[in-house]
């Protein structure tokens, strides 16, 4: 029974972490975007406008939860949860401190790749059930994009499996050496770009391209259900940043004890800020460029990285 209780606790913790990360993330995004565009960003509520997102959350919770008359009601209502739940699950395999990952499993790496893939179904169902051309096109684009970028993303993590000889995250952390950072640098670039595409953020936000598709697959959502989509996006971003900080930058290994955990969070925050920076710097890609990047640039890069690691390993 204790296993289930711990599971429930971790689930609750992951939900809370995502909620807080989304709160801070939205504020951070608006501030960073403001600075990039030579504005100030939110500043009225609280110090540095910190309470702005809290006020927005209150607004979203109190707003009417509208279901379009033509929508497929049951699927429309459940779709945001199918998007959100797998993202929350992906947090459990990340090793946060020495010898501690909430779910310590021998297939951890694969888990992190496979479980968020379920949320593609939620995106497709949201686009489908809205009975709206914009939403349908957004859903189709999202599915094509997320499936394509899964491939380079999964390939980019394989160097660590090769180097450590294990898919258990804690084993990889035991084997981790500082020179893995330069050795796996190409894989990091592939991982970073395809993670941005995987969570549908700019410049890969074609599924929700506001200037042509209104908001894509969640165009018809309002209130709390819309907020769940946003939380899934920020949750995916935070999970990707944490995962990258752990495996590519050694996470907690550089400092002892709690300091290491703080360092992990700091590196992950830097990565998340970099993702926001990328979003507000680059223009949105064309669909053919998007697919070309995944298949003609990132996948060969990831394969090249695999070859490099494979050649290096016998000399270690």
């Amino acid at each position: 029974m204790s296993g289930l209780a711990w599971g429930a606790l971790y689930g609750l913790a992951a939900g809370l972490v995502i909620a807080i990360a989304a709160l801070i993330g939205v504020w951070g995004e608006r501030k960073v975007a403001g600075r990039i565009q030579m504005r100030i960003g939110p500043q009225e509520l609280g110090p540095f406008g910190l309470l702005q997102t809290l006020a927005d959350t209150l607004k979203l919770v109190l707003k009417e939860d509208i279901t379009p008359a033509a929508a497929d009601v049951r699927i429309f209502r459940i779709a945001p949860l199918i998007v959100f739940a797998p993202i929350a699950m992906s947090f459990v395999i990340i090793p946060y401190a020495s010898g501690f990952a909430p779910l310590d499993t021998s297939v951890g790496i694969l888990f992190f790749m496979a479980v968020p893939a379920i949320s593609v179904i939620g995106v497709l169902l949201a686009g489908w059930s809205s009975r709206n051309t914009y939403a349908t096109i957004g859903g189709l684009r999202a599915a094509a994009q997320m499936i394509s970028y899964e491939l380079p993303r999964t390939l980019s993590i394989l160097p660590f499996v090769l180097l450590a000889g294990s898919m258990r995250p804690l084993d990889i952390m035991d084997e981790w050496r500082w020179w893995w950072i330069p050795l796996t640098f190409i894989a990091f670039i592939v991982y970073f770009i395809s993670s941005i595409a995987e969570v549908n953020r700019g410049p890969f936000d074609l599924p929700e391209a506001e200037s042509e598709l209104v908001a894509g697959y969640f165009a018809d959502y309002s209130g709390i259900r819309w907020a769940i989509f946003m939380m899934a996006e920020y949750g995916g971003m935070v999970a990707a940043a944490l995962f990258g900080a752990v495996f590519w930058f050694g996470g907690y290994l550089h400092l002892p004890g709690a300091l290491g955990v703080i360092m992990l969070i700091a590196v992950a925050t830097l990565l998340a800020v970099a993702m926001i920076w990328v979003k507000w710097t680059f223009p949105r890609m064309r669909p053919d460029q998007l697919m070309g990047t995944a298949w003609k640039v990132l996948t060969p890069m990831a394969l090249l990285q695999l070859v490099i690691v494979g050649v290096v390993i016998p000399w270690l």
């Binding site: 694969l110 888990f111 496979a114 379920i118 179904i121 859903g139 899964e150």
Partner: peptide, 21 residues
Amino acid sequence: IVQLFVYIGGVLVLMIFAIML
């Protein structure tokens, strides 16, 4: 995990994709 990856993340997504078209 492979069942999730291949059948949910791959096969089922393609099926829904086809339904949407």
